[in-house]
Simulated assay, not measured.
Amino acid sequence: MSVEADVDLYDSETFAALDYAPDGILKHLNTGAYTFETGATLPQIVLGYETWGTLNKDASNAVFVAHALTGDSHVAQGASSEAGWWDGFVGPGQTVDTERYFVVAANMVGGCSGSTGPASPDPNGKAWGSRFPFTTIKDSVRLESRLADALGIKVWHTVLGGSLGGARALEWAVEFPERVRNCVVVAATAESSAEQIAFAQAQTAVIRLDPDFAGGDYYENERVPSAGLGIARRIAHITYRTAAELDVRFGRAAQGAEEPVAGPGKGRGRYQVESYLDHQADKLVSRFDANSYVVLTEALMSHDVARGHGSMQGALGRLGGVRFLVGAVDSDRLYWPEQSELLARSLPDPCNVHYITSPIGHDGFLTDIEQLREVLNREILT
């Protein structure tokens, strides 16, 4: 069973006693009331977060790691028995070395892994459900700045992430350029494209069309919108992988003894690729809330660093003091490498894009991130 620690933003003595330990254990921070970018207000926002390593005396070794869409704060194993989603990349002696750096990861507001989201209770104890405010990535980083304040971190050594996490890292630098020394953006863009929005809209639509969605207020019902969430995951996962990988792994092969071409009066069996998508859907449905999937997906749809700064040039022009590393997956068909190239060229100090070579597509930022170890150690984590 996981150990959790509850911490109040305004209780500095509690924070001192906590000493940011143990590694990889979920903690909670009450950040107080918050007004979202849209103007909606909640009376209290709690952020679930985890830390690894030790913050040095001048708080100059802090690294913020931002998770992707269905990720969470559990980046590395630490004291927990549960494996982290970037184990082998974050940890003692790893690329992000927790013997040198104090690593912080927070579950994004609107999520379902420790932070306030649609499933969280309102002051009367009822889940927010459909009343949970529209959330943006800017909202995420503004709340995460309160976490940094509470931890005594005035400036991050590095903020880094991939996909939605890369968008969060970039937004951190745009919103708080004075608080970010280095920014690592992998498989992400400065704004969501029409195609990315289109793929995302199909996912949120199918969740809302599930009869068990109940307009987002299903928490007291016997059934939850598992079917809609599962189909959304299938759509998403196809965009995370490549046609070539699916062909090589599965081709047109049947799943076991199932017969995909049905005879008269017989039910059709599945192809192996269908079984694979079913498995991916079942895994997500067992651990994720459908409302949170909608909230975070629509936050990513809204991603646009230009909002509030007049233009993309105006937003990126704020980054003159931030050192960047931009990474891309060469086979990515969701976040095209050309979009990473555009971001890199548009920075005040243009940089080269460093490529992860992988046949699997977008998910290469998770599976093959170690390909960036050398350049990260040389240019960022020095």
Score class of each variant (00 low, 15 high):
T54C: 03
D349T: 05
R345V: 06
S12M: 12
L246V: 12
G152H: 06
A262M: 04
Q44H: 07
V224C: 08
E370S: 14
T135F: 04
E175M: 11
N291H: 06
P337I: 03
D349K: 06
D212I: 01
A205N: 15
G216K: 02
A83M: 12
E144A: 04
S292K: 00
E37Q: 10
N352E: 12
I207V: 15
C183Y: 05
R234G: 13
A306I: 03
P22D: 10
W128M: 09
D6C: 09
G267C: 07
R252I: 10
D139T: 00
A243P: 02
L246F: 15
V206D: 05
E370Q: 12
L319P: 01
D349A: 13
D278Y: 03
S113F: 12
G84T: 07
N182P: 06
D122S: 11
V46Y: 02
G265Q: 08
N107P: 04
Q280M: 15
P121H: 05
I197W: 00
A188Y: 05
T382G: 08
K283D: 14
A290V: 08
F64P: 01
A83H: 08
A127E: 09
T189S: 15
H157A: 12
P359I: 03
H309N: 15
L170K: 05
P121D: 04
G93Q: 09
R208K: 14
W336Y: 12
A119W: 04
L47A: 06
D247N: 15
A105E: 07
A281V: 08
N291M: 01
D217W: 00
I235C: 04
L26T: 08
L229Q: 05
K27N: 11
L319C: 03
Y101H: 13
L334A: 06
G93K: 09
P264E: 14
R270K: 14
P337M: 05
V326S: 02
N377C: 11
A187P: 04
R223E: 12
A232P: 00
Q272S: 15
A40N: 08
V159G: 15
